[in-house]
């Protein structure tokens, strides 16, 4: 544990030092790369939160990809037909809740294997959105909000305080989730249910209800991530638009040890690697084939996080059905 902490801090210090050095060399590019890291990393961080909320209560969710795809599509579709971005965002969140409830229904009420239930969501989302999708639509997107005063701080202003509304909202959600998980009775109960549901049940906590609630709430967070993707980050929608982000998020969740802050850090690291890659490709400094450059964020993240994550332990009751009489 101690070793792990020091490694984490050393890594952070190195990153800060490198950023500082680069900033002194070329402030504009460095600032834009770090700002891009945040907006690339955020959807992954939010998607990882979906995984954390589900798995912490014992439900494996490999349908995050489907949630992202479906909710980003619905968000875009509603925003484009009503020409109202706010409607779009709310519909996306609602769509996320629907996928969450569907997963809960299959895996908790029907006691279906959770991996299969998640796969069903992924397949349905891919099929349904591809079928309904029509090219050539546009939708209103959110526009960045500069936070007065803070946005004038050099470097940090542009990175943190000149973003779209969903970035701020997403960050608030992540921090709130962290606090809730470790400092409220909801969090304590959720973790107990994911580790040893019998203890929660015998303490009067309904395992069934809490799992339903958390998987649905997680769906809402996934919907937010979807809305962010189609209505803020990209501003359009296309088939297969989420490109595996839901699966990447699962890996980041593991690297972050099922802790919201850990997953956020892992997602930001991945976002940074992606931003740097983009910059490299744009500058075309290395003359390396694009395919290899595109691999870079994945390779870098796997190497660095695999070293820093140390021994990880998933919630003990993850993926298991809870039966009272077996407790």
């Amino acid at each position: 544990m101690k070793r792990f902490l020091t490694f984490k801090w050393i890594l952070t210090l190195i990153l800060i030092a490198i950023t500082g050095y680069l900033y002194s060399r070329d402030g504009v590019i460095t600032t834009s790369v770090v700002a891009t890291a945040l907006i690339f990393g955020l959807p992954l961080a939010l998607a990882a939160m979906v995984g954390i909320m589900c798995e912490r209560t014992g439900i494996v969710n490999i349908g995050i990809e489907g949630t992202l795809l479906f909710s980003s599509f619905i968000g875009f579709f509603v925003a484009s037909t009503t020409n109202n971005g706010v409607f779009g965002i709310f519909s996306a969140i609602l769509a996320g809740v629907v996928t969450g409830l569907f997963l809960a229904f299959m895996s908790i009420s029907w006691k279906m294997d959770q991996i299969i239930a998640g796969t069903i969501i992924n397949i349905l989302a891919t099929g349904l959105t591809s079928f309904l999708y029509k090219q050539g639509h546009t939708a209103p997107t959110t526009s960045p909000i500069d936070i007065p005063f803070f946005s004038n701080i050099p470097f940090f202003g542009q990175v943190l305080f000149m973003n779209g509304p969903l970035v701020y909202f997403g960050l608030v959600v992540i921090f709130a989730l962290y606090v809730a998980l470790y400092h409220t009775s909801w969090g304590l109960r959720s973790r107990a249910v994911g580790e040893h549901p019998g203890s929660a049940d015998t303490a009067g906590v309904s395992v069934f209800r809490l799992r339903y609630l958390n998987v649905a709430l997680a769906g809402a967070v996934g919907g937010l991530a979807g809305a962010y993707l189609s209505l803020e980050l990209v501003g359009s929608w296309d088939r297969g638009f989420t490109a595996g982000k839901g699966f990447t998020a699962l890996a980041l969740m593991i690297f972050g040890r099922w802790n919201p802050m850990g997953a956020l850090a892992a997602a930001m690291f991945f976002g940074l690697a992606q931003a740097i890659t983009n910059q490299l490709m744009f500058a075309d400094v290395a003359h390396i084939p694009e395919q290899f450059v595109n691999m870079l964020p994945y390779v870098l993240t796997i190497v660095v996080l695999a070293i820093s994550a140390g021994k990880v332990r998933p919630p003990a009751a993850e993926g298991q059905q809870y039966e009272k009489e077996q407790a």
Partner: peptide, 23 residues
Amino acid sequence: QLVPVMTVTENIILGDEPKRGIF
């Protein structure tokens, strides 16, 4: 019926937790 990865205190209060506000 105890959660192995939690502390003694957390295990004892589970289900009826002392609170300050929402925390």
